[in-house]
Amino acid sequence: MPDEGKLFCFGCGYSARVFAARLAARGFALAGTCRSEEKASTLRGGGIEPFIFDGDKPLADPEGAFEGVTHLLISTPPGEAGDPVLAAHRDLLKRIAPQIKWAGYLSTTGVYGDRKGGWVNEETPLDPNVTRSNRRAAAESEWQALAAESALPLHIFRLAGIYGPRRNQLQGVIDGTAKRIVKEGQVFSRIHVEDIANVLEASMARPNPGAIYNVCDDEPAPAPVVVAYAAELLGRTPPPEIPFEEAGLSPMARSFYMASRRVSNARMHEELGVTLAYPSYREGLKALLATL
C-alpha cells in the first residue's frame, strides 16, 4: 500500500482510530470528524486534525477539510433519516471523488439477518431483521449509488462483533458485567480490532472498487463459550449460565440474540491475502490478557 497520503475519517471511533494510527506510522496525514470540541481535543492528541460534524449540520469548512485527501473511511452510523454523511455532503463527495484513491464503508454482518446458525457469504441476499441492521443495509445501497454516479472507489466491509483492548470478555469477567446467556443454537462471529485494520490495509494495497468483504475471524462460536474461556484465562469461576428467556435483557441487547449465523471470510482471505493475527477468540483473548 502507499506510504503517504491523507486519510479522512467520517467518524473517529474505536476501529477508525486503530486504522488511522496504522496509516500515521506509514507517513499519512490524518483528519476526521467528531461530535464536540471536547472530543476534538482527543483527536488532536492522536494526531488527527478534527472537524466537528454532529450528523445534522454540514462541516463548517468542507472544502478545507478535504484538501489533499486521498483516502476516505466512513464509520458514521445511519440514523432514522438515513446516512447523515450523504445527507450533508453528497454533492461535495461527488466533486472530490476523482481525487480519492480508496474509500471504505464500515457496515455490519447484521445485514444478513437470522440464518438459524447457517453460513452466509457476500453473495447471500440481505435480510436485516432489526432496525439498526435495516438502516445499515439501506446505507450500503446509498453509498453504492453514490459510487456509481461519481466513480468513488468504494469498498464495503461488513464487520462482525468487534473486540480488542478495553472492549473484551476478559474485562467483563473482571468487572462483573460478563454474562453467559444461553440460547439454543446461537452462534456469533467476531473480529479483533487490529485485524479490522489488517483487512483495511490489505484492501488499500489491492483496491477493487465495488468489492464487499465480510470481516470476521475463522471460528464463529457461542457467546457463553467465549465468556467461559475468558474466565479460564483469568483463573476465575465463570459466571453461571442464564437461559435467554430469563436474562432480562434490554431491547437492544435482546436484538443481538435474535439472529444466529456463521459468517464466511473466504473472500477476505482469498482476494486480499489476509492472514489474521487472531484467527479465533482464543488467540485474541490470550493476547489481550497481557494488556489488563
Rank of each mutant, 00 (worst) to 15 (best):
P153H: 12
F244P: 07
P84D: 01
I191N: 04
P78A: 03
G117D: 05
K6N: 12
I74A: 07
D54C: 13
E37W: 14
A259Q: 11
L234W: 02
K286L: 11
C216A: 15
C12S: 14
N265T: 00
P279S: 07
A29G: 14
R236M: 15
R158W: 10
A178Y: 11
P165S: 12
V130M: 03
S75I: 01
E49F: 02
G82P: 01
G172M: 12
F10T: 02
Y213K: 04
K179E: 15
W102A: 06
M252I: 06
G210Q: 11
A277L: 14
E67R: 15
R167D: 02
V182R: 05
L170Y: 04
A139R: 01
A16S: 15
I52H: 00
L146F: 08
S189D: 10
D61C: 07
A60M: 06
R166W: 14
G248E: 06
D217Q: 12
L7H: 08
L285I: 04
N129P: 01
P222T: 14
Y112M: 06
S133Y: 10
P209V: 10
F28C: 12
A202N: 02
F8R: 09
R158A: 04
S189C: 10
Y229G: 14
I191W: 09
K39C: 00
C34G: 04
R135L: 05
E271P: 03
K6Y: 15
I52L: 07
P58R: 00
E80V: 06
D195P: 12
V215L: 09
A139S: 13
E140R: 03
E184A: 13
A290G: 07
P125G: 05
P222K: 01
I242S: 09
E201Q: 13
T108G: 04
N168K: 07
G79H: 01
A16F: 14
L233Q: 09
V173L: 11
T76Y: 05
P128D: 02
Y281V: 15
R90F: 03
A147H: 05
G117R: 13
V182P: 04
G82Y: 03
L72R: 00
I181L: 13
Y14G: 11
A148E: 12
K57C: 04
P209N: 10
A138N: 02
V193F: 08
A247W: 00
K101W: 07
A65G: 06
Y229V: 10
I74N: 02
L288F: 09
E122I: 00
E49T: 11
E80R: 04
G5N: 13
L154G: 00
G118S: 10
A31R: 01
N121D: 13
G164P: 07
A97M: 09
A16P: 13
A205N: 12
N168L: 03
S133L: 09
N134L: 15
Y105A: 06
G46L: 04
G161E: 07
Y229E: 15
R132S: 05
P240I: 10
G68R: 15
E270Q: 15
D56F: 03
